[in-house]
Design a protein around this nucleic acid. Structure first.
Lengths: 136, 136
DNA sequence: CATACTGTAATTAAAATTATTACAGTACAA
DNA sequence: TTGTACTGTAATAATTTTAATTACAGTATG
């Protein structure tokens, strides 16, 4: 993952956890993260689709956690934002006429899968509550 | 890591391992990987600096593994190409006036470090020889 | 019904990645 | 001893990805 979606989502979720049910606006969260509010709303849209948050429209609206922070582990968040492979892109197409090239993506993907498993295992050992509690 | 440096380096090293000491030109390897030869030479430069390969200049020149594929594990390769954090960039600077924002990068980096340890542990369980032997 | 939000699309800007061009240096081989 | 085929590296251009911005319709509140 080269973009900062994981960090943004985790930041959003940490803010919401610490708000203890209070609604936070995308503008407020964008100010804390230091990014554009529209990006926050896009991430919220994704987090909503994954059942982590809910939002209330209209004046005095905002977002809040829709499940307990103890029930969200960091692997869940990773899965929700993940798009590429961990170690790089597979978009490259090696030469199919080369005996190594034509098999490379298969072996690379196998490798990516096993490393991703290791990553997920590590991430799943921590919940959002654990993470949030490290803040003063 | 968003770029494909790990995949390129592993591809190069796999080709060299299977060449069994024979010299391969950057042009040949670029053809197998399907990228520009200059990129291959840049990666070779890095791999050389890390002691994995050596190159011979001039006509009929090329590159070859400078240590046994059994003595190179995939974590070594990862470390040689790594530049960013695994889960995203830390270049973002959250708002230092926000109690969450000002501590975010510290906690994020701690998390990144622990996930990287998990990744390295997994990668270190396989050598370049293991990887290469999976090819027909 | 003015205000302050969300939701989302479209566009622009910026940053990162990759490709290309260029060329000096080196070794081989005729 | 000279043409050829490489490496090594810098500089630049092209492409792709990421992030910011603009715009605006929709919604809830007071």
């Amino acid at each position: 993952m080269s973009n900062s979606r994981f960090a943004i989502s985790l930041h959003i979720l940490t803010l919401l956890e610490r708000a203890k049910g209070g609604l936070l606006s995308s503008e407020f969260m964008a100010g804390s993260i230091n990014i554009n509010p529209v990006l926050v709303r896009k991430e919220l849209s994704n987090l909503r689709n994954h059942g982590f948050v809910d939002s209330k429209e209209g004046k005095n609206g905002g977002s809040y956690l829709s499940k307990s922070a103890k029930e969200i582990n960091l692997a869940d968040i990773y899965k929700a934002v993940k798009q590429n492979n961990l170690l790089g892109i597979s978009k490259n197409t090696p030469n199919p006429q080369c005996s190594v090239g034509k098999q490379m993506n298969t072996h690379l993907n196998n490798l990516y899968n096993s490393t991703e498993q290791a990553l997920l295992k590590e991430l799943s050992s921590q919940t959002l509550a654990d993470f949030s509690n490290r803040f003063d």
